[in-house]
């Protein structure tokens, strides 16, 4: 065997090894991301149960005690829901929306969101609070890529600018019984992006300024409230 042939074979072997390492590294990182999401979601499940228990314990307590006593934890929980949403969106971008692990994580995340939404609703009724709640339905099937991306980004901005705003984002096409029930209760049509702002449906997205007109003016008036609760949102793909 000539030196040229030998060197080509060795170089090809090393190149394939290097590329294999690259593929392994990317795959390993993606698996670590999924594991991280699993860990966070497990923690969130516990946190959510804890909050539910708190609600139950404080059912007969004055609302001031409840809101004063648990507002910090509630903010942390909601913030965690938001963070996991961002991470899940990033992971979905990396692994693809058809990846079985991504779908499973989205199912879990959606359940957490619905649970958090129900608790918020319950708290609002019990204590006569009026948080602005947005349910945001998007789709990844390509029919609303630009509009949904913009809506997701603008909602993130609104959520961070107006902490009393609560945003819950849902992939409309996710095959999850609880989500289908929510869509049915809120009478969501398959036109995207779709929003439910304080139980009122709103379809399509043009601009942030137009979108802001759909919110109650009180939201913007109390934007700097220190006692407001955080909310959860998920940027769409």
């Amino acid at each position: 065997m000539s030196i040229l042939t030998r060197n080509i074979i060795i170089s090809l072997g090393i190149t394939i090894l290097l590329i294999g390492t690259v593929v392994y590294a990317i795959n390993y990182l993606n698996q670590k991301r999924v594991a991280e999401l699993n860990t966070i979601e497990d923690q969130l499940s516990t946190d959510t149960l804890s909050v539910e228990t708190q609600y139950a314990l404080l059912e007969n307590a004055p609302c001031e005690d409840f809101t004063n006593g648990s507002s910090t934890e509630d903010t942390q929980l909601s913030q965690e829901v938001s963070n996991i949403g961002d991470k899940l969106s990033y992971t979905e971008d990396k692994l693809g929306s058809n990846d079985p692990q991504v779908i499973q994580l989205k199912d879990q995340y959606t359940l957490l969101e619905i649970r958090d939404y129900l608790l918020t609703e319950q708290l609002s009724k019990t204590c006569n609070l009026n948080p602005t709640i947005v349910l945001y339905f998007y789709t990844n099937n390509g029919s609303c890529q630009g509009e949904c991306n913009q809506a997701g980004y603008d909602l993130s901005y609104l959520r961070q600018t107006y902490p009393s705003l609560r945003v819950y984002s849902f992939d409309y096409n996710l095959d999850l019984g609880a989500l289908k029930t929510l869509e049915s209760i809120e009478k969501i049509q398959p036109t995207f992006p779709a929003f439910v702002i304080n139980h009122k449906q709103y379809y399509g997205y043009t601009s942030l300024s137009d979108f802001e007109k759909e919110f109650p003016p009180a939201l913007f008036a109390t934007s700097t409230s220190a006692t407001s609760t955080a909310s959860a949102t998920k940027s769409t793909k």
Binding site: V23, I26, L29, R33, E36, K87, Y90, Q150, T161, L208
Partner: peptide, 29 residues
């Protein structure tokens, strides 16, 4: 530009903490 045109620049250009999180390391082939 399309995504951020309606949002104040102070929000667009703020430093995101996520940049320093290993989770978001943009490793690609």
């Amino acid at each position: 530009y399309t995504l951020t045109r309606g949002v104040p620049l102070s929000y667009v250009f703020r430093v995101h903490l996520s940049l320093f999180n290993w989770f978001y390391i943009p490793l690609t082939g």
